[in-house]
Each structure stands twice: as C-alpha cells, then as structure tokens.
C-alpha cells in the first residue's frame, strides 16, 4: 500500500515519535511511503537545531536519519516553516536571517506537494494536531 504521512507536531511531541514509528513499520512491512509532509508545528520535527537531553530520544535526528537512509521524499511546508523560523539556507538569505536550521534531506515546498501526495497515495495518515 502507498502511504502519504502528514505530521503536525514538533519533535518533542509523542505524536512525532508515533509518526516516525508508523513510517518505519510501513517500510518494514513492504509498503511504500510516497511522501512525508510536515505542516503546522510539524515543521519543528525537521529542525536540525533541536538539542535533546542525553537520556531522551532525539526524534528530530531520528527523522533525519530515517529519511536519509530510505531516501524518502521529506517535504516541509514553506509557509508554515517561515512563520515558525525554520529556515533553509536559501530562505535565510532571502529574508536576511542569521539562523539556518533545516537542510537535506528535507525540502521546503508548498501545499501543492501535500495535495499531490494525497492523490498519489492509497491512504493519508495524519499525526498530531489538536
């Protein structure tokens, strides 16, 4: 089955860890993850400036490793990211901000990528939110 996974919560939220575990289980079960789309506070789950205490799981790092290892299509909503100060090199230059806290394997893009994934997938699975 082809899954599109949408995440709406930050790396410190249990739902971010659940989304990661779901995605891992989907691949392990022989399914396909057509795209990960991080929206709303989900953009924080892609931030590389998260520092987790040593005795806690670093979910943002685990996301990054997972997406890289499986060469998944990891898309972070650009409008949601800009609003929350999650910027890649290009956007930091564009808006003259000093901090860059997102890079590969993540791509900043628009909501069209979410709709495109929904059309492509058999199932949309959402994590987080209210």
């Amino acid at each position: 089955m082809k899954f599109a996974i949408a995440l709406f919560s930050a790396a410190h939220a249990p739902s971010s860890r659940r989304a990661l575990q779901f995605a891992q289980a989907a691949l392990a079960g022989g399914h396909e993850v057509v795209r990960l789309f991080f929206y709303q506070d989900g953009v924080y789950s892609a931030s590389n400036s998260v520092v987790t205490p040593q005795d806690e799981q670093d979910i943002a790092q685990q996301w990054r490793a997972f997406v890289s290892e499986h060469q998944l299509d990891g898309v972070v909503c650009i409008a949601a990211a800009l609003r929350r100060g999650v910027l890649n090199n290009e956007e930091a230059s564009r808006y003259q901000r000093s901090a860059v806290n997102i890079d590969a394997p993540w791509a900043l893009s628009g909501l069209g990528q979410l709709h495109d994934a929904i059309q492509d997938a058999d199932r949309l699975i959402c994590f987080g939110g209210p």
């Binding site: 929206y39 979410l114 709709h115 939110g129």
Partner: peptide
C-alpha cells in the same frame, strides 16, 4: 480551532484553498 487561537484555523483554510486551486 477557533480563529484567534493561533495559526491553525488559517492553516486549515490554506489546505482547502490550495486544493481548490488545483481543482480537487
């Protein structure tokens, strides 16, 4: 979400409008 409780209401509407723009 209520309209003044943060960006959630606007972001939900943005998903809808983006879908509309693609004639979905």
């Amino acid at each position: 979400q209520a309209p003044w409780s943060g960006p959630s209401a606007r972001e939900a509407l943005d998903v809808v409008l983006a879908g509309g723009a693609f004639d979905l």
